[in-house]
């Protein structure tokens, strides 16, 4: 029998493209959730590979907390412009007003949890039956058990007991009215795989992924970007550091890491050296309890 060798990044790419096309083939109104972070930027490149020379069969949707890094927002707008694809932005601020939600207050105040309300509102507004997201199974142990097609009820809730078995490369996207599916094409990628792919594909990222000098608050041993959105206490220590971000979420819940990595190669070298996992290094929201992610997913979060 003849053999051909497909490099591991090509295998991951082929799987992700296949998943995106299953979404396009099985659903009436899919959307791609775009955050401006490296994982969703990778999804956009994969969508180009899956659907060019055609247009994407879905819009890009961004749930803007109003506390995003300006660099990520600028990147988002330029990318949508360059791609010529539709971008839908919905604001957490509007949901807070409309639904009279209370904003979290105090030391760990973040709108990250409120994103879920805006996301569900947006799903309802446009009648999306599938949302493609950039979650990876290596990020967190509750995600390690997530399906590639994850069925959510009409409240967006994830019920680990109702998960469908997923066999071979066959994805069951059949849902009842009101239910929807979250689809995760890069489930099997790790942080390192994403960076290796960014390198191979020569993908430009928002510059906050690389080293820069920034004013930070030191909080529980983590460096939080100093901004108008973060809750300050008199005893907070403000320092100037050479940092970069490993994940780009809300400014209020994403910590920076001290780094001098200035390009993709030096970032990869740093990840190989690092002794802290990606979420462990950068996410305040996971630290609140041992099952923080599982609990949020049950409530409709990604």
């Amino acid at each position: 029998m003849s053999t051909r060798h497909l490099d591991y990044l090509d295998q991951l790419e082929a799987e992700a493209i296949h998943i995106m096309r299953e979404v396009a083939g099985q659903f009436q109104k899919p959307a791609l959730l775009f955050s401006g972070g490296k994982d969703s930027i990778t999804l956009v490149r994969l969508a180009e590979k899956a659907f060019r020379p055609g247009k994407f069969p879905f819009p890009l949707v961004h749930i803007d907390t109003g506390h995003n890094f300006p660099e990520a927002i600028q990147y988002r707008d330029e990318l949508a412009e360059r791609l010529g694809e539709k971008l839908i932005v919905r604001h957490v601020e509007d949901t807070i007003k409309k639904q009279s939600l209370s904003e979290p207050t105090g030391r760990y105040a973040s709108r990250n949890g409120l994103q879920t309300y805006t996301l569900l509102e947006t799903i309802e507004e446009f009648g999306f039956d599938a949302c493609i997201g950039g979650a990876r199974r290596d990020e967190e142990k509750a995600r390690a058990k997530e399906r590639i097609f994850s069925v959510r009820d009409e409240f967006g809730q994830w019920d680990p007991k109702r998960q469908r078995p997923e066999l071979w490369n066959i994805y069951n996207g059949r849902v009842r009215k009101g239910e929807n599916v979250r689809a995760f094409p890069i489930s099997n990628w790790t942080e390192l795989d994403v960076w290796n792919y960014i390198k191979r594909e020569n993908i430009a990222l928002p510059n906050i992924y690389y080293t820069h000098e920034r004013e930070c608050l030191v909080r529980d041993g983590k460096l939080m970007a100093s901004s108008d959105f973060i809750f300050r206490e008199p005893e907070d220590v403000v320092v100037k550091k050479q940092v970069r971000f490993r994940t780009v979420g809300d400014m209020t819940c994403t910590a920076a890491v001290e780094s001098v990595a200035f390009d993709v190669d030096s970032v990869i070298a740093e990840i190989l050296e690092s002794k802290l996992s990606e979420r462990g290094a950068t996410r305040i929201d996971d630290k609140l309890s041992e099952t923080a992610m599982e609990d949020r997913k049950k409530g409709g979060y990604f």
């Binding site: 058990k145 489930s187 599982e294």
Partner: peptide
């Protein structure tokens, strides 16, 4: 053992993926 119920019971219920 990723899910709350699994840790409580000390068993693996579902397929977990590791890398």
């Amino acid at each position: 053992d990723g899910l709350k119920a699994e840790r409580e019971q000390g068993i693996t219920i579902d397929v977990a993926y590791k890398y």
